[in-house]
Design a protein around this nucleic acid. Sequence first.
DNA 1: GAAAGTTGATTAACATGTTAAATTTATCGG
DNA 2: CCGATAAATTTAACATGTTAATCAACTTTC
Lengths: 172, 172
Amino acid sequence: MAEKKSPSKKPARRVPMREFSRSLPMSLLRAREAVMRHFRASLRGYGLTEQQWRILRALAAVDTIEVTELAQVAFLLGPSLSRILRDLEARHLIERRIAKADQRRGLVSISARGVKLMETVAPSSEAIYAAITKRYGARKLAELQEMLHALEGSLAELRIGDAASAEVGEFE
Amino acid sequence: MAEKKSPSKKPARRVPMREFSRSLPMSLLRAREAVMRHFRASLRGYGLTEQQWRILRALAAVDTIEVTELAQVAFLLGPSLSRILRDLEARHLIERRIAKADQRRGLVSISARGVKLMETVAPSSEAIYAAITKRYGARKLAELQEMLHALEGSLAELRIGDAASAEVGEFE
DNA sequence: GAAAGTTGATTAACATGTTAAATTTATCGG
DNA sequence: CCGATAAATTTAACATGTTAATCAACTTTC
């Protein structure tokens, strides 16, 4: 018995703001973490990170894809993608070549070895997704996804007139 | 000749899986990014990262808080928090001491300088939140948050019998 | 009351996020 | 054809995410 009942947290509120534990970014972060926790635990057993798995999944759906396009599909920034591709190539899970028409563009494909790994990992990944769907409810899940997509769409064109973004440089 | 107008992506589907761009983790990630993009742009002007701002906000709401508890509130892992606190202390935005009762526990408070910075940043942060709320709709936003919280609750107790998590170690 | 176990916090090591700069190749205007 | 500009990718630099290991301080047990 250790809990001393903690003094119920004084509400100092030196700066009046929303209760930040209920902010939208926090809600999204916590929800995603609750979901990913399960997938990470599984992927880890196969030596894959979440991002590496995203890339393999994207590659499995196409024959070949350009690096820039892959970045959009897998929702990764260029530098991250560049590093991960280097690693996946070293593990022989993907293959790369350069576009004949435009020497600047890189073309990426999943390798036979990569496909084999995916076939190994996919079942448990699907099982986890099914468990989550069953737990939360397929209907609610679809509804949630719809709302998330709508949110993304709403904010896509949002331009915020940030009047108060003057340089400060006083708090370094 | 090679199709110049995007060849509409051949559906290779070497490994049958869900369309991953519509998976729940991706939906959550994309939605969060759509939101955070705006806050990051603002915070950056004040020399703060998203995580540093989360910590300051958490600290502003209390008098003093233990490191472990701060980690829970700000939703950061111990190592990340440890590094960020070191940085914030060096910038004199927070103050630290050690609990008399238990020398292992660290106590953290926001400094006067930290409060001053918060008062500077808060307005534009609130403005961004207001703009997002207006754009998406206050009602829908509340509903979304409710669904996210429910999802988090659903998955909290979820135990997945991962039958297929055998050691592979073949793809490194 | 000291060895053994536990806990709070940090450090270590590696992977990714994020922005800026560098590199290479294309393309354009003259 | 040439120099300037743009585009695709990578590298660089720093901050955080993630797991494991470390270290010190507390607790339990015999």
